[in-house]
Structures are given as structure tokens and as C-alpha cells.
């Protein structure tokens, strides 16, 4: 089809008009989306409260924090725990290992244990000293 000047003018006009209309319509759509977003309430956080049975706090008095959803931090690096309440400290069987500060100081193994222990003794006790769990000795 041969493009006359009239037809070329019509095409150009249509293109400009359609582009303008698209721009206007697009802008209106975006504006309506923004309006809808501003109208929606911000969802509340879903962090579960700490277990009411135990509410440990850190040295700064902050509540125990979560490392990941299933894991809680009972003591942060750099804090030093006092002994658990109302517990008599166990008498050491050997000199203590080096105390580790907040940095990763080496932990020295204890002195060698006795190789030939005395024969087992069975005692009847009135008080019950508490058993201990730690890496096997």
C-alpha cells in the first residue's frame, strides 16, 4: 500500500496517541497500586514469647535472644556465669583446666588419671551428692 502523506500523518498521530494513552493508563494503574498498599496494615511480627518457666537474662539485662528459631542463647560470649543457685561446688579431682575468656584460648587436657584405681566401695549415704555430666573422664 502506498503511504500518502495523509496516511503517514494518521499513523504518526495514532502512535503518539496510543503511547500517550498507555502512559496515562500505566501511571494511573501504578497510582492505584500504591494507594492499595498504603491502605493495607503492616503484618505483626510472629516472634514467640520466651518460655515462662525460665527467663534467663544476659549480663546487660537483655532477654535471651534466639540464634535461629529453634535455638536460644543462654549466655553470650564474654559473659561469665555465676554457679547455679543453691548448689555446692564439686571438689575438683585434679587442677582445673585453663579458664577460657571470650577469645578462643586453648583448653588443656587435665593431668593423667590414676591407672590402677582402688577396689570399688559401696556406701550407704544419707545425703545425695549430685551426679555430673561432662565430656567423659
Amino acid at each position: 500500500m502506498k503511504m500518502t502523506s495523509t496516511k503517514r500523518f494518521a499513523v504518526r498521530t495514532a502512535l503518539v496517541t496510543s503511547t500517550t494513552l498507555a502512559t496515562v493508563i500505566g501511571a494511573q494503574a501504578l497510582a492505584s497500586i500504591d494507594e492499595a498498599a498504603r491502605a493495607q496494615p503492616i503484618p505483626a511480627p510472629t516472634i514467640a514469647p520466651a518460655d515462662p518457666v525460665l527467663q534467663p537474662t544476659t549480663a546487660t539485662g537483655q532477654p535471651v535472644s534466639a540464634a535461629v528459631p529453634n535455638v536460644v542463647i543462654l549466655r553470650h560470649a564474654g559473659e561469665v556465669s555465676a554457679p547455679a543457685i543453691n548448689v555446692e561446688p564439686q571438689a575438683p579431682a585434679r587442677p582445673s583446666a585453663s579458664v577460657v575468656s571470650g577469645s578462643a584460648a586453648p583448653i588443656l587436657p587435665p593431668n593423667p588419671v590414676q591407672i590402677a584405681p582402688p577396689a570399688p566401695v559401696v556406701q550407704q549415704v544419707a545425703a545425695q551428692p549430685a551426679p555430673v555430666t561432662r565430656s567423659s573422664r
Binding site: 525460665l54 546487660t60 549466655r75 559473659e79 561469665v80
Partner: peptide
């Protein structure tokens, strides 16, 4: 028992 914590 609740542990107690003290600042280093």
C-alpha cells in the same frame, strides 16, 4: 534453677 550472669 535460673542461672545468674555477671559481666566479665
Amino acid at each position: 534453677q535460673t542461672q545468674t550472669h555477671t559481666q566479665k
